[in-house]
């Protein structure tokens, strides 16, 4: 039985009639929303702010207006310690568009030290960010897993109320 579908090579396609190249032009201005606006203002001041669910008491970081689990409004704001532990890490050699990176980028999920947490819960206040002062070898050998890290901030005058106001998390 013949299989439908005609394979064409990239070079062949480029020579064909009727090939359209198109780059969408669209601009967006996202609002950070009720909870994240406060979080971003906190970053500008060098603070990591989370919320506590008024119903189950879990700490929401990144903060949100509601706890998705209890479906009740998140309650009080609290400032969280800027230290934590690396849960997992990776080393990227490619860019967002699949180009080669000149310097590999090391990123991680960091479990923040939060009041009332033992540190082994399957759900936890966490941050996704870069690691610095860590080598490729540290990641590949597994040495970095479980490592203690803390936030390294950009100088106050360079902070813009962005997740990148934290430059990275560094070992200490």
């Amino acid at each position: 039985m013949e299989i439908p579908g005609k394979y064409v090579r990239e070079e062949e396609l480029r020579k064909m009639k009727g090939v359209i190249e198109y780059v969408p032009k669209a601009k967006y201005s996202y609002s950070a929303g009720q909870a994240l606006s406060v979080f971003l203002r906190g970053l500008k001041e060098g603070k990591i702010l989370g919320k506590r669910c008024s119903s189950c008491g879990r700490i929401l970081l990144p903060p949100r207006e509601f706890c998705e689990s209890c479906f009740s409004p998140a309650g009080e704001w609290l400032e969280l310690p800027q230290t934590g532990r690396v849960e997992t890490a990776s080393v990227s050699y490619i860019s967002a568009k699949r180009g080669k990176l000149e310097r590999p980028e090391i990123v991680a999920i960091i479990r923040l030290d939060a009041p009332g947490y033992r540190g082994d819960e399957p759900e936890f206040p966490g941050i996704f960010h870069r690691l610095c002062g860590v080598s490729e070898e540290d990641v590949m050998s597994g040495r970095v897993f479980g490592a203690r890290v803390r936030a390294r901030w950009r100088p106050a005058e360079q902070r813009a109320g962005s997740i990148t106001d934290i430059e990275c998390f560094e070992r200490w």
Binding site: Y30, A32, L36, L40, P62, E87, T88, A89, S90, V91, S92, I94, S95, A96, K97, R98, E105, V107, A108, I109, F128, H129, R130, V139, G142, F145, S162, I163, T164
Partner: peptide
């Protein structure tokens, strides 16, 4: 707001999960 400024590619998240699973 929280992730795109870090310039992630799709494979990052898989790599983080795979490393966690391996460990």
């Amino acid at each position: 707001i929280l992730e795109r400024p870090l310039g992630p590619n799709l494979i990052w998240i898989f790599a983080l999960e795979m490393a966690w699973y391996m460990r």
